[in-house]
Amino acid sequence: MDAAQPQNDSDTLVRIRDLHFSHGARVIFDGVDLDIARGKVTAIMGPSGTGKTTLLRLIGGQIDPDRGSVQVDGEEVPALSRTGLYGLRKRMGMLFQSGALLTDLTVFDNVAFPLREHTDLPESMIRDLVLMKLQAVGLRGARDLMPSELSGGMARRIALARAIALDPMMIMYDEPFTGQDPISMGALVQLIRLLNDALELTSIIVSHDVNETASISDYVYVISQGKVVGHGSPEVLENTDSEWVRQFMQGLPDGPVPFHYPARDYAEDLLDHAV
């Protein structure tokens, strides 16, 4: 099941070791080890509710783990000071599920936002940069629209343009394909791969859309019930020994995760008129 893993430290951008995290009484991560290779597209997949979004927030330092180490580019994230954390975040881009565009700004101002906040570039230069980013996602003509006027797919692409505004070293995608029509989906899928290679980014995709995600990923981690249950390149995982992973990757309705909710024998239930 083990395929070629990124071994060398300088090849690994994000290193997670023995991660433990609980939210109240619920254990979300129970000893997770992950390596995200530089320059590659890594997918983190699993059933809904396994805390995949939580993982991104741990990497971004929005929450701290109960135990374990989260390292980004050699720096231990939970140990960073506020200034250090903010410095790190400027080098990370994040694409939220809903896009999370600022609703009171135009598309142009949204993409310009990180540039205006974190750089002292003159407006003329900012304008050029914004137009370039918008061109990369194919929405340069939409620059004067308001977020409320955008479709879901367009909003996500604008959010992507905003995420690459400061030329980050990595981008995290939180369920980017959920609820998209085939055309937007196709556009987004292609965009993620293209940008990753053209801009030499490292991409982390959190998703449960197996087919789309697997088609562009270099490496996949499957997480369930707080642990990594499988990892490897997409081809390797398709032929894995683990029945569960195969059920997940192939989208089979029945397998280790049963179709039927536990119940009485069917014949008994139907014939039981007394109840």
């Binding site: 971004g60 929005q62 903010y86 410095g87 975040r89 400027k90 990370m92 994040m94 939220f96 599920q97 809903s98 999370a100 565009l101 600022l102 609703t103 936002f113 990180p114 906040e117 974190h118 959010a159 905003r162």
Partner: peptide, 13 residues
């Protein structure tokens, strides 16, 4: 709508 979270991730308080 995660705008506040988004700002945080863009290193804007």
């Amino acid at each position: 709508t995660e705008q506040l979270s988004g700002m945080e991730m863009m290193a804007v308080d």
